[in-house]
Design a protein around this nucleic acid. Sequence first.
DNA 1: AGATATTTGTACGTATGTATC
DNA 2: GGATACATACGTACAAATATC
Lengths: 229, 229
Amino acid sequence: MKYAAVYKDIKRKILNGIYTPWAPLEGEEMLCGIYGISRTTVRKAIAKLKQDGYLHSQQGSGIFVNPPEFYEERTMTTLSERIEADVDLENQILQSDLIEANERLAAICNLPVGSKLHHYIRLRTINGTPCVLEETYMPQYLFRNFDAAKTPRGSVFKYIEEDCKYGISHAIKNVTAIKVEGELAGLLQMENGSATLQIEHKVYLKKSVLAQYTIEVQTNKTIRFIAVR
Amino acid sequence: MKYAAVYKDIKRKILNGIYTPWAPLEGEEMLCGIYGISRTTVRKAIAKLKQDGYLHSQQGSGIFVNPPEFYEERTMTTLSERIEADVDLENQILQSDLIEANERLAAICNLPVGSKLHHYIRLRTINGTPCVLEETYMPQYLFRNFDAAKTPRGSVFKYIEEDCKYGISHAIKNVTAIKVEGELAGLLQMENGSATLQIEHKVYLKKSVLAQYTIEVQTNKTIRFIAVR
DNA sequence: AGATATTTGTACGTATGTATC
DNA sequence: GGATACATACGTACAAATATC
């Protein structure tokens, strides 16, 4: 895929600072020459880079590099998505078992009551400081060889797609303001009764098959989004 | 623009239920015939519909209609964006004045300390029930004829783009969990000390010119997002 | 199970329109 | 007004994934 290679190369140049924010890119015709491809293919790469927030363009004027905030903060709500390769992140499994779905879980998972679900509670810390407490449910019939101890350190999407070879259709996230109290406050080392964000995270395979349901409570009280016109 | 017309027509058919969720669309070749356009142009319309969450496609299989949650809940964080044409929404201006930027506001607005800013506080209610309290700042030099009483009922973007003819570059939103207390709790008719969401909303014109800064507190404790692969 | 047809994805080339400089 | 640069649109060919027989 030629356009993918061009996408990757231009993205690299932006991330490495070879192209600086607001600076104009070479024109389309010039890029054709540089990469030895047709204008259609150049435009396809540019379109994807615009979609992902790396570039914007203006007819008659040129193609311009976006500053980092345009591509760094998009729909990355959960911590796992944001860190990706953060090596200092530590996982501590507080609980891990196989449960039977009650009414509420069965409804969420689109499964009959009593269906078997993997279940685990995990505390994630950075340099010893708690940042997220998450509780996850995954249908057993989809993940036969599941082992909570080998739970993914980074993105959930990668685990499901690359390790399990499932195709993800979409994910729905509900962000709610809650008060942390009692045991929860202790685990997260937060002041009892303080407000923070709870993120409910449902990952779906094709149609409405739920692959994972996670509720995570962050110590971080704010998340950021950017909407580009 | 032919592709825009096709985009609009297919979108209409989805919203009106002529195409139902998960149903396959006519093939690309067929669509060429229906609209009397080339495959390139059909694909461009489809690409935009996919980008906006109305469709998805699979190579070798077909193009499929997404269910409503795919396009209804995307990056619409603020209430104004979500309601659009809700006629029952009422605005009550609690305060309206012209102020001089202090250090904090000057930094946010990228303006010198003491710059004049329009400022107003607005309570929005639906059927008498409070739903949002918002405080807004807008640089006077960009909006000379501003009148808080004629403040936009719907989307802020529409007001700035259509009424003021400014081109919006991007918007950054910070979603924070807070506790509502004292006067704020009273205005929003919420229990004192309960947790809810505060959304900070910065709208930028080209480069880093800030056009509007809004802080809104919702009575609604949850917002929803969807991420499509 | 395997060959074939169908359908979307990638890529090239060309021409013209339109906004900006 | 002219030159430049991105946007739209048409047509063609082949590749890759999927569906079907």
